[in-house]
Amino acid sequence: MADIIRARALATARGSADELQYRPSASLFSTALRRLRRDRLTLAAFGVLGLLVLMALAAPWISANLLYTTYEKIDLELRMMFPTLAKPMWWLGTDDYGRSQLVRLMYGAQVSLGIGVLAALINLTIGITLGLIAGFYRGRVDDLINWLITTMVSIPTIFLLLVVAALFRPGVVQLAVVIGFISWMGVARIVRGQVFAARERDYVLAARTIGASNRRIMLVHILPNIIPIVLIIMGIDIGGVILTESALSYLGFGVQPPMASWGNMLTNAASFMFHAPWLVLAPGFFISLTVLCLYLIGDGLRDALDPRLKE
């Protein structure tokens, strides 16, 4: 009885209906998962993104076994062919070299998603590490890291990328690494703020009382507590990287042909706009769709993991 009264009091305090039933111990993640399962928009975003990933992974198989072509097979007789249902490989038309746009879009998904994930992993690692150190040690260390952040933020990312691309002509993997190395500042700032707050909590004091080292407190006690926020920013982070890569590739300094990326497919498309508008529309649509899914997932995770942050 006392339990039920307590649960009801709790529920009124939190103002949320699903807490009415007293649940003894629900972890943060199981509660989040429960909320997520009811969030149709986020689930749809997960679904679409899953399809896109599948499309990227299966690109070689699909193009070889279903479309009977490759991403670099040139056919100058069939240049800029209007999308037609005659053959599956022409469903989205052909580009200025007569290559199947559908196949190139699938391979482009590999590049865009691959660079997105790799660069995001790098910038998350750097951002979390520096944010954690700055927020934990404060003082001089924080000043130094903050200086690094302010400096990097003052340089327009795309500009710096352009210079680096001009100097070193990076391949796909290097490109992802470079993008990762110059896009960590947002993550670092957010993590730093979180750590600032977390290190004042009682559990940190408790850990310190029983003699835990700084490193242990950071890795075992503080880090797990900032994982939710990392999950939330991850979607938008990957999306941001994909947008950056597409812009750089569009300018011609990112992924180089004949390899296809959604960005570099638009480079030539712009000059054939009059004859082949579909070449402009499709790649941009896929970039937008992917980034939209990632954005919605980030949004959904935020609502699921920390409903207080909503609006």
Partner: peptide, 14 residues
Amino acid sequence: NVVPHFWLGLVFIL
């Protein structure tokens, strides 16, 4: 926030 602006520019021209 999700549509690449350069592409929006291309569509605008189109």
